[in-house]
Amino acid sequence: MRLADALMLLVCLAACQVVLGQEMILFADDHYKALGEPLIAAAPVGPVLQAGQDDLVRIAIDNRGRLDGLISTGVFGQAGEAALERQEEVKAIDALNLVASLKSIPEVEVLTPEVNLSQLSSGEAATIQFAVRPSPSARGSYDLPLEVRYERQIDVKVSAGLVYPLLLPGRSTQTITLEVMPLGKSMRAERVRSSLRPGANGSLDLVIRNLLPSTVRNCSATLASGGPFLVGQSRATLGDLRPGQVALASFQIQTDRGVAPVEYQMACTIDYDGGSAALTFPVTVGSSGSLPANLGWLAVPAVALAAIALLVRRRRSRPAFGGRYR
């Protein structure tokens, strides 16, 4: 390599370091240098807890790291080793030997010290869980720090067909919001119907039954926002409920675009004259291409209409009596 070319390469690498804020470490005979690193994101899957009850908190973590470039250093060598190095360099965006720790706060004690994952490649997701113990007096939303330590490949050397990665430590700090609700048996979530999809506005219908032996007056339902859900109008008026009577509470919900299509736990507070109750219930987020739950009933009529249309078409194409097909 000429001196001018070498100087130009160093200038390009230095510019990339300034733009991307990454360490530029090169072995002497490197053929390629990958630009990119892991990007860890986390969100609670079941953020609703009952006060005074031990429970498990599930957290979905995913690696959103992306490869910003693969630079050729201009060093010439064996074609096989260069190809292998190119293949290994793109692993710079993978997270290795992950250790996740959720920190306790006075209102919520974390019983699981750490959770380990061997690898989280770019584009992959995993679910980890921690045992927690909310205090009996805990009420409302609480933010718990989540720290994820990992190793990442900063460079790789290939020699005689063997791969020698150079690893450096990395760390990601997230905030996990959990909702703690008081125990209550005066109300029950009788039925849940939702049409939630990633990155879209959806609806949630909740049928609530009064379990008390007396009429409760001025009832209202307040749906808690948390995790990947943002509730538009969080309060629904239910009125008076006689013993055993049910009422419908409807809500509009915006779901985060990056949320995984799995089952989540949500919480709702029922307030009435002289008391309140906390309800938790599961909701399922469908995939972005799935039919919303509240439109699923259209599938059967659509099939029936298609069958009728096909039958009518065949009858119209049938020749009159005494005719023949050509």
Rank of each mutant, 00 (worst) to 15 (best):
V180N: 03
V300K: 14
L168D: 06
T215R: 14
I253C: 05
S250I: 02
A267E: 06
A306L: 10
G286Y: 12
T237V: 07
G227I: 00
L26C: 14
G286W: 04
T175L: 07
Q17R: 08
V108M: 08
L295F: 04
E263K: 06
I270P: 04
G232Y: 14
V110R: 04
Y325G: 10
E89C: 13
Q53K: 08
I25C: 10
K157I: 10
R257A: 13
R318V: 12
S225W: 05
Y264H: 10
L56K: 14
G258Q: 05
G65E: 01
G202P: 09
G69L: 08
G226A: 14
D256E: 12
L120K: 01
Y150C: 00
T280M: 07
A95P: 00
F27Q: 13
L279R: 04
T237H: 12
V19F: 11
P292Y: 02
G184D: 00
R209N: 15
R58S: 12
I308G: 07
A15H: 10
T222F: 10
D55A: 15
A299N: 09
L70D: 06
A131Y: 15
L120N: 02
D271Y: 06
P213K: 15
L298C: 13
V108D: 13
R191D: 15
V192K: 01
Q50C: 08
P292D: 03
V57Y: 07
C268K: 12
A95F: 01
G232S: 11
V259C: 08
R86T: 03
L9C: 12
L305R: 03
G140V: 07
R242G: 14
P38D: 06
P228L: 09
R197Y: 03
S141D: 11
T177L: 15
E109Y: 08
R324Y: 13
C12K: 11
L178P: 00
V312L: 10
Y164C: 05
V18I: 13
R217P: 02
A14Y: 12
L26A: 07
G74D: 15
T255K: 13
A247E: 07
P261L: 09
L279F: 04
S234M: 04
C16T: 03
L311H: 08
M187C: 10
L20C: 03
T175H: 01
P47T: 05
D273V: 12
V148Y: 03
E23T: 12
S104K: 07
L7C: 15
I270Q: 12
L67H: 04
P213M: 08
P165F: 02
I93E: 03
A100W: 04
G36T: 00
V148K: 00
S104I: 06
D155H: 02
V180S: 09
N63T: 06
E81R: 00
G140N: 08
P213D: 10
S159Y: 15
S214V: 12
E37P: 01
Q265P: 01
R313H: 09
D94M: 01
P182M: 12
L196S: 03
S288I: 11
D205I: 06
L183T: 13
G323E: 10
A267G: 15
R326N: 13
V45C: 05
V158Y: 00
A126H: 13
Q254I: 08
S122E: 09
S290P: 02
E109S: 13
A126C: 13
R171E: 05
L204C: 14
S135I: 02
K33Q: 11
A82I: 05
E151I: 01
